[in-house]
Design a protein around this nucleic acid. Structure first.
Lengths: 205, 205
DNA sequence: TATTATACTGTACATACATTCAGTATTTTT
DNA sequence: AAAAATACTGAATGTATGTACAGTATAATA
């Protein structure tokens, strides 16, 4: 997939919005009106560029014969993601007994793939905007950087905290709430498991 | 919704299949070819019957201007929701120039239906876990209760705040951040527009 | 029994629309 | 520095398409 220009993105968005609104694709004239072009050929050339780059297909001769192609960057395949309650003790396993329910969600919903939703208990990450009962989209990985919000387990205790590596052997798990204190982990004496990191958040009012 | 005849059902199915296959609705001639009719008027009369019964809408004069209306038979699970930037001034309209992009999301993703995502600017609702650049799922409604997180507009200023009715004529818009003060609105002197309320939140790390 | 809805064929026509050609100008890539 | 891509205006044209009109026939409804 070649890169799209900002004007081409506008045209692509315009097509999608038009389809959402009306149920069928726009004509060249419709696009011109929406985007302020004065010649139908302005739309035409953009459409041909989008076609050449693989974003749309155009059926020759057909009125409104535009269809937006599902491209690899933005697959909209849905998937049932499990929601796991953050229990005070124990690893947040995907074992059936820990799954409260599932949520249907496009696979590429967040910027990164993820594996499950974790239901937050407590307010230790309040200042990072993570509230009780929020659902954190967790990607299972141990590849975490300083500042990442990680799901960490020490012994059997699972918490959500900021990750800070202070030295090769010292990790600090930092809450986002003044009522809580940093957890300092010495990797030589304590066992730290990084279950994954947060790639997004979902809240239902 | 009146009852559909078997032939009308065939035509309706044909339209849906055609859209699934091509991305845009069929012409009268397309329908005839698919179903073996020999006159475009066969399709035309069926379309008019389907329109009269509320199964489809037809845009007059537009090629392929058929759209299947939402009904029990054809639930659409996913939908492209627009993301609107919260601009300091002006109503968060769904006008094209305000739509930053769209997000594909199941219609029943939050507990209530919603209309668009609003991208949050500022930290006035920080203590409610709403951070800069979070996406609030907004349901367009004026039916709001005390304690609801509302999208309110005073003159041209749009804000997200808690809604509190202090008296029949006095509304307080309460931030969730000590650095901000309550906005007191006297409905007799000030104009307050409730654009909608928050029914959920989405954050991408 | 009269009327309306359904279910077609067939012809005709105005126009909605895709598409090409001719230009101009700016930016990006080679 | 040349070539290609981008980003438009403007005019022209053939045809794709909606839609009206004229029929025929059967089933459903009032």
């Amino acid at each position: 997939m070649k890169k799209i220009t900002s004007q081409q993105q506008r045209v692509l968005d315009c097509i999608q919005i038009y389809i959402n609104k009306t149920g069928f694709p726009p004509t060249r004239a419709n696009i011109c009106k929406e985007l302020g072009f004065k010649s139908p050929n302005s739309a035409e050339t953009h459409l041909r560029a989008l076609e050449k780059k693989g974003f749309i297909s155009i059926e020759s001769g057909a009125s409104r014969g535009i269809s937006i192609l599902d491209n690899q960057e933005y697959p909209v395949n849905d998937y049932e993601y499990p929601v796991i309650g953050l229990v005070a003790a124990g690893s947040p396993t995907l074992a059936e007994e820990n799954i409260e329910r599932t949520i249907n969600c496009p696979k590429s919903f967040f910027n990164s793939n993820f594996d499950y939703f974790l239901k937050v208990k407590g307010l230790s990450m309040k200042n990072a905007g993570i509230m009780e009962d929020d659902l954190i989209a967790v990607k299972k990985t141990t590849d975490v950087k300083n500042g990442d919000i990680v799901i960490a387990r020490i012994d059997d205790e699972v918490t959500v905290k900021f990750f800070r590596r202070k030295s090769p052997k010292i990790i600090e798990l930092e809450p986002a709430n003044d009522d809580f204190t940093n957890i300092i982990v010495n990797l030589e004496t304590d066992e730290l498991h990084i279950e994954g990191k947060s790639v997004g958040l979902l809240r239902k009012n």
